[in-house]
Computed example of a mutant assay.
Amino acid sequence: MNAVNAEATAVGLDWLATAGPLLVWVVVLSFVFIECALIVGLFLPGDSLLFAAGVVLAQHGAEIQAWALSLAALVTAVVGNQIGYYVGRQTGTRFIARRGGRVLNQHNLDRAKAFLDRRGFLAIVAARWIPWVRTLAPLVAGAAGMNSRRFMLATTAGAILWVPTLVLVGFYAAGLLASIPWLNTVLVWGSVAFFVIGTAYGAWRYRQEMRKPVEERSEAAST
Results as ranks from 00 to 15, higher is better:
114 A>Q: 14
97 A>P: 02
100 G>L: 12
52 A>R: 07
107 H>N: 11
112 A>Y: 03
51 F>N: 00
91 T>Q: 06
77 A>F: 03
49 L>E: 03
68 A>L: 15
68 A>D: 06
51 F>P: 00
112 A>L: 07
57 L>F: 11
99 R>Y: 04
69 L>S: 01
77 A>Y: 01
107 H>F: 05
91 T>P: 00
99 R>T: 03
96 I>W: 09
50 L>R: 04
106 Q>M: 14
104 L>P: 02
100 G>K: 11
69 L>Q: 05
102 R>W: 07
93 T>M: 14
55 V>F: 11
115 F>Q: 14
71 L>P: 02
57 L>M: 14
104 L>Y: 07
99 R>A: 05
111 R>E: 12
77 A>P: 01
64 I>M: 13
48 S>L: 09
84 G>N: 11
58 A>H: 08
72 A>F: 13
48 S>T: 15
77 A>G: 04
96 I>N: 08
53 A>Q: 04
81 N>E: 10
49 L>W: 02
54 G>W: 03
113 K>T: 02
57 L>H: 07
54 G>I: 03
75 V>R: 10
86 Y>I: 08
49 L>A: 06
73 A>T: 01
51 F>G: 00
73 A>N: 04
51 F>I: 09
91 T>H: 01
78 V>K: 09
60 H>A: 15
97 A>I: 08
91 T>W: 03
62 A>K: 09
90 Q>Y: 05
88 G>R: 12
102 R>N: 13
64 I>N: 12
51 F>S: 01
60 H>G: 14
75 V>G: 07
100 G>F: 09
87 V>R: 12
95 F>E: 02
68 A>R: 12
83 I>W: 14
86 Y>E: 14
67 W>Q: 01
80 G>C: 11
106 Q>A: 10
109 L>F: 14
67 W>F: 13
54 G>Y: 04
96 I>M: 13
84 G>D: 03
113 K>E: 03
48 S>F: 05
68 A>G: 14
79 V>H: 09
91 T>G: 01
82 Q>Y: 13
62 A>Y: 06
111 R>S: 10
55 V>L: 15
95 F>C: 03
49 L>T: 02
93 T>A: 14
86 Y>R: 15
115 F>V: 09
97 A>F: 07
97 A>C: 15
75 V>I: 15
62 A>G: 09
93 T>L: 15
71 L>V: 15
50 L>A: 00
58 A>Q: 10
81 N>W: 05
89 R>L: 06
67 W>T: 00
57 L>C: 13
62 A>C: 12
97 A>E: 06
